[in-house]
Structure formats: C-alpha cells, structure tokens
Amino acid sequence: ETGKELVLALYDYQEKSPREVTMKKGDILTLLNSTNKDWWKVEVNDRQGFVPAAYVKKL
C-alpha cells in the first residue's frame, strides 16, 4: 500500500509485555508511529505493538 513506511528489523526482539511484538532480524515491518524516540509502534502479521527504536531502521 502506498503511504506506508517500512522498517527493517536489525536484531531479534522477544516481546516482554502484551503491548510489544516479537520480530526476527531481517523482518520488514510496517511503521505506524515513530514519535517516541525509544519505542516505535509497528504492525507485523496483523498484530500491532511496540519495538525498541534502536532495533529497527527506516527503509
């Protein structure tokens, strides 16, 4: 879809709370919100949640 910003997972991340999502290094995720410098909201496999901003980079 146009207008979607994507990020690349630089590291594996295992969710530690229900508000977070698990990702694997190399995953491409849809970026939903990056206003917080530490935690970015992403969508992966129809799930939305937060990942550490340092673990992903914008494509």
Rank of each mutant, 00 (worst) to 15 (best):
T2S: 12
T2M: 13
Y13V: 01
K37W: 08
V56D: 01
V44D: 11
G3C: 13
K24H: 11
D12R: 03
G3Y: 13
P18Y: 09
S34H: 08
Y11N: 09
T30P: 15
Y55H: 07
E1G: 14
T35G: 10
D27N: 08
V44W: 07
E20A: 05
E43W: 07
V21W: 05
N36M: 09
N36Q: 09
F50H: 05
D46R: 09
S17K: 07
T30N: 09
L29A: 08
W40S: 02
R47V: 08
V56C: 13
L59V: 12
L29K: 00
K58V: 13
Y55G: 06
L32A: 03
I28Q: 04
A53I: 04
E43L: 10
V51T: 02
I28A: 03
T35I: 10
L59M: 11
Q14K: 13
D27G: 04
R19W: 15
E1K: 03
T22K: 04
D46S: 11
T22L: 03
K58W: 08
Y13N: 01
M23P: 00
R19F: 13
K16E: 08
A54Y: 09
S34P: 06
F50T: 03
T22N: 07
L29I: 07
N45H: 13
P52M: 03
D27E: 12
V44M: 15
Y11G: 05
A9C: 12
E5M: 12
I28K: 06
V7I: 09
W39L: 03
E5N: 12
K24L: 08
K24I: 08
S17R: 08
V42D: 00
V51H: 00
V21F: 12
P52K: 03
K58R: 12
K4I: 13
I28C: 06
W40M: 03
E5R: 10
S34V: 07
K16M: 12
L6N: 05
D38L: 12
R47Q: 07
P52T: 01
V51E: 01
E1I: 14
T22M: 04
S17D: 12
D12F: 04
A53C: 07
T30V: 15
I28V: 10
T30C: 09
K58G: 05
W39R: 03
Y55R: 05
V21T: 05
P52L: 04
P18R: 09
D27H: 05
G3M: 14
R19E: 13
W39H: 03
G26L: 03
G3T: 15
K24S: 08
Y11Q: 13
K57V: 15
K25Y: 05
E43Q: 13
Y11C: 14
Q48E: 10
K58S: 08
L29V: 06
N33G: 06
L8T: 08
P18W: 10
L29C: 10
G26E: 02
